[in-house]
Design a protein around this nucleic acid. Structure first.
Lengths: 212, 212
DNA sequence: CCTTGTTTTAAACGCTTGTTTAAAATTGCT
DNA sequence: AGCAATTTTAAACAAGCGTTTAAAACAAGG
């Protein structure tokens, strides 16, 4: 019964592109409808308002973002491999949707922003048991004993910022978009080497750094 | 001849607060004038337009941001100390103005954003000779041989993201703003330890990690 | 006190915004 | 085909936008 691409889906797809690229207050309803190739009134016919549409897009983006995280954390691999996989997946995901982190961070930071059901959305990370797993590894002396919040920060910082700050970095070093994208491939290796080496220090052997 | 606070300065100060908090398209001229406690028309009387005022505020923010960088890089300290000092200064600066990185990155990323004279603004970093200094240290085998862009990325990622993503991190770990701010102090130590340890590996001695 | 120039104000300008309305076009069913 | 429900359209709505205007308030000097 579902057509190849319904009007409703076309609006959502256009809204996704425009909202993520320009933010809620950076675009207009007419811009979205024009991007979808249809009348303005249809946006409010299928979704109640611009805000309601935004909420749907935002939560979908958040969902996509959390999904790749969950898929890795719900495996039964040892923690070190999980984190390596996470870095791989995250760089892969962000190469495809580089604007999503900025989008989420910006809209969550706004005081008048969309109030999503945070508890349920973020509880799913907690629910994977990844944090408890870290505590276990730390207690066993296999992982460096630093606060869980800092572990999250280290992972997210070194994944998301390289994509969020791409415009700045390109200008600082005079790189084209292609050159920068190429550098990011190398940077992922560096980040993996640094983070894994730091979080799981091999103190007794001479080979302190393990090449991927 | 300069009064304690002229009308022009009051507008600039109000505009700085509002623009940085909400972005160019996220606020209105009337909002700025109201924050400054005066009439709307005065914004266009002293500055030609909303865009012209924004350009001034943006470039000032960029200048402030680059200044703390420059002051460290223009010293004659050895590179390792320079980077340590940079991390100190950057965390100090960002604790004061945590919204500036997002502000700069967002507005630079927009296609219809303000076109600043990038070359002159960023050339000043190049001009400190910090990049050449890295190359010298790398050639001498005292610094890990990775691309300069990646060095910049490592420094910026681990400084700026923790402030940009504060809202997300607080929700993920259920922390209050005060708790998170406290954690950032500890995180700075961790970041310094990790980055310096990675960029300047002490391969021959057993003390591979130097406490600050 | 009147004149000159500057600063501030209230009001209005034309335009765009998000949203609504009512009519037109389309669809599905018998 | 013909009716009913759904989908799409053009047009309009009030409200808010950035900006301009013209008059009021102010300051300073002769």
């Amino acid at each position: 019964m579902k057509a190849d691409s319904t009007t409703e889906d076309k609006i959502k797809e256009a809204a996704k592109q425009v909202f993520i690229a320009k933010g809620f207050s950076g675009c207009t309803s007419r811009e979205i409808s024009k991007a979808a190739g249809m009348n303005v009134a249809l946006v409010n016919y299928y979704f109640r308002s611009k805000s309601a549409l935004f909420k749907i897009i935002f939560e979908a983006a958040m969902g996509d973002f959390l999904l790749s995280m969950m898929e890795v954390f719900n495996t039964t691999l040892p923690l070190e491999d999980k984190l390596k996989n996470y870095l791989d997946r995250e760089y892969e995901f962000l190469a495809k949707y580089p604007e999503i982190p900025s989008f989420i961070i910006n809209e969550m930071g706004r005081k008048d922003g969309v109030h999503i059901d945070n508890t349920s959305v973020f509880k799913c990370i907690e629910h994977t048991g990844i944090f408890k797993e870290c505590l276990v590894e730390q207690a066993a002396g296999r992982m460096r004993k630093i606060d869980i919040t800092s572990i999250t920060l280290l992972m997210m910082s070194n994944c998301q910022f390289p994509f969020m700050g791409s415009a700045v970095l390109q200008q600082v070093h005079g790189l084209s978009a292609e050159q920068y994208q190429k550098q990011l491939v190398e940077h992922k290796q560096i980040v993996t080497e640094m983070l894994i080496g730091y979080l799981f220090p091999k103190s007794d052997t001479t080979s302190q750094i393990t090449k991927k």
